[in-house]
């Protein structure tokens, strides 16, 4: 029974993966653009750092690792769930989608996972390769950091996906979806450490940001990777990260219930 249910999602996952593989030019275009951004960012930090060492031990060299890894992570944090919700609301297919015997958000998740696998193969590896050749081979700070990095990365992906799904569902009840998605995009862009590490921000601000979920998408795994935080700090922050996953998952669960109910009543 459970096996049979999982099969459906696996199938959706596979189909999405195959579809992602067929968009060849998009893939090349994205790799090219992401590489340009990555290289520009590397030069940017090089020019700023010169020979300085930052108070938490970060040098221009570890900033290069940060840049390459941040570019790599941005590939893995691609989600389609909010767009899918928007499309199905606009086309009015959400009602029929929800009547199906499979969970509609389960479908979106399966699609995103399928897409992720395709992205890892066709975008992540090329970008890591280009980054390694042109900027720096991004070596992790120590072998013992690997399990923590992998663990926090999974939690990061969970937060990222849940945020996307929650914003998608929120947009469902609001009207102006595009603007809302923009808000989310820029919050993540600027407050997660993906472009600028938050240790550049004043202490009061990074203290506040450490309470918000955004930094747990990019900043934490990257800090673990380049070793710019102490073990104690990492443990404490991973705990907050875990709490955020739980909070967002609960919120997601409640919202999806509400949305489902709303669709059932209104018929989409």
């Amino acid at each position: 029974m459970l096996n049979g249910r999982l099969d459906k999602y696996l199938y959706i996952c596979k189909i999405r993966m195959i579809r992602s593989f067929t968009y060849k030019f998009e893939v090349y275009g994205n790799i090219l653009m992401q590489s340009i951004i990555m290289i520009t960012t590397a030069f940017f930090w090089k020019a700023l750092f010169k020979n300085e060492t930052f108070e938490n031990g970060v040098t221009a060299d570890s900033m290069m690792t940060y840049t390459v890894m941040s570019a790599a992570l941005s590939v893995m944090f691609t989600t389609g769930v909010e767009r899918r919700i928007q499309q199905s609301v606009e086309k009015g297919s959400i009602a029929t989608d929800m009547m199906r015997p499979v969970n509609v958000f389960g479908i979106f998740l399966a699609e995103d996972i399928g897409n992720l696998i395709a992205l890892i193969v066709q975008n992540l590896f090329p970008i890591l390769l280009i980054g390694s050749l042109l900027i720096k081979v991004p070596v992790i700070v120590s072998l013992s950091a690997i399990p923590m990095f992998v663990g926090s990365l999974f939690l990061s992906m969970a937060i990222n996906w849940l945020l996307a799904a929650i914003f998608g569902m929120w947009a469902f009840t609001a009207i102006s979806m595009d603007a809302l998605f923009q808000v989310k995009k820029h919050l993540i862009r600027l407050l997660s450490g993906s472009i600028i590490p938050i240790w550049f921000f004043p202490a009061w601000l990074s203290d506040i940001l450490n309470l918000l979920p955004f930094v747990y998408i990019y900043q934490l795994p990257l800090d673990i990777y380049i070793g710019s935080a102490t073990n104690d700090e990492i443990c404490r922050r991973m705990l907050i990260q875990l709490v955020w996953v739980l909070v967002l998952a609960t919120l997601y669960y409640l919202l999806s219930k509400k949305v489902l109910k709303k669709v059932m009543v209104q018929g989409g």
Binding site: K14, M17, I18, F21, T22, K24, V27, Q122
Partner: peptide
């Protein structure tokens, strides 16, 4: 022209 299945699509890349 696209090949069939996953193998075909990867090849078409």
């Amino acid at each position: 022209q696209k090949g069939k299945g996953l193998g075909g699509t990867v090849k078409a890349l």
